[in-house]
């Protein structure tokens, strides 16, 4: 459950990011990514927040989706573009990667997307950035469109939370010394979603786990 802290270190090597984080967390983030992917309908128009090396975006493109994706890590975007170039046929034409942070989300058209997806990104954002991003998610989704998140949150249960906080501290310190940054479990995601005008549909989180798969949608009527 501490592996998501270490992803800040793994981000330094985009080409091997997926393989390494798989090894560190025993495949849990891959499973979460697949769970997110499974909820996206074939042929959808998708926006991905924090796409990393573009693994999820490529999978979605192979299912006929058109994906706009961005990441604040330039090396990740370069890796994503490079790997997209290796795709067969015209699949790369369905992928649009952009180097930017969430502050650039105002460039995307209102109501243009069937789904917005994001895996292990919200815990890297400040509170202001998260609120801003979710506000724009609600704006760019079409009515009824889905927000699909894999997100680091505090485990359920007081004991598990305390244990998690205690065990997390050395990992945070190590990551912080190496990268000068760290992640923070998202504390009030349900409130944040409601504040952005999104309706929570599903929250999947195993007991003791700090990883949740969250589904929300933009209501039909504002």
């Amino acid at each position: 459950m501490l592996s998501y802290v270490f992803m800040k270190i793994l981000e330094a090597r985009p080409a091997s990011y997926d393989r390494r984080i798989d090894r560190v967390d025993g495949g849990r983030s891959r499973a979460a990514r697949q769970a997110v992917q499974a909820r996206v309908a074939d042929g959808s128009r998708v926006l991905e927040i924090g796409c990393g090396p573009g693994t999820l975006a490529r999978s979605l493109a192979q299912r006929g989706c058109t994906v706009d994706a961005f990441d604040a890590n330039r090396a990740m975007i370069e890796e994503a573009r490079s790997q997209a170039g290796d795709l067969a046929g015209d699949l790369a034409d369905h992928l649009h990667f952009r180097f930017m942070g969430v502050d650039g989300m105002d460039r995307y058209q209102a109501g243009a997307y069937d789904a917005v997806v994001s895996t292990l990104v919200l815990s890297e954002l400040s509170d202001d950035e998260r609120h801003y991003a979710l506000g724009h998610v609600a704006r760019v989704l079409r009515r009824g469109g889905l927000l699909l998140l894999a997100v680091e949150v505090p485990p359920t249960g007081t004991g598990a939370r305390a244990l998690h906080a205690l065990a997390r501290a050395p990992a945070v310190a190590t990551t912080w010394l190496i990268t000068g940054s760290s992640t923070r479990p998202v504390q009030h995601l349900r409130d944040d979603l409601a504040g952005a005008g999104l309706v929570l549909d599903d929250w999947s989180q195993n007991a003791g786990s700090a990883l949740a798969v969250v589904v929300a949608h933009r209501p039909e009527e504002a």
């Binding site: 502050d103 105002d106 202001d128």
Partner: peptide, 12 residues
């Protein structure tokens, strides 16, 4: 400038 613009926009 990029990090300052980011905080101007995301802070509202």
């Amino acid at each position: 400038a990029r990090t300052v613009v980011a905080v101007i926009k995301t802070s509202g």
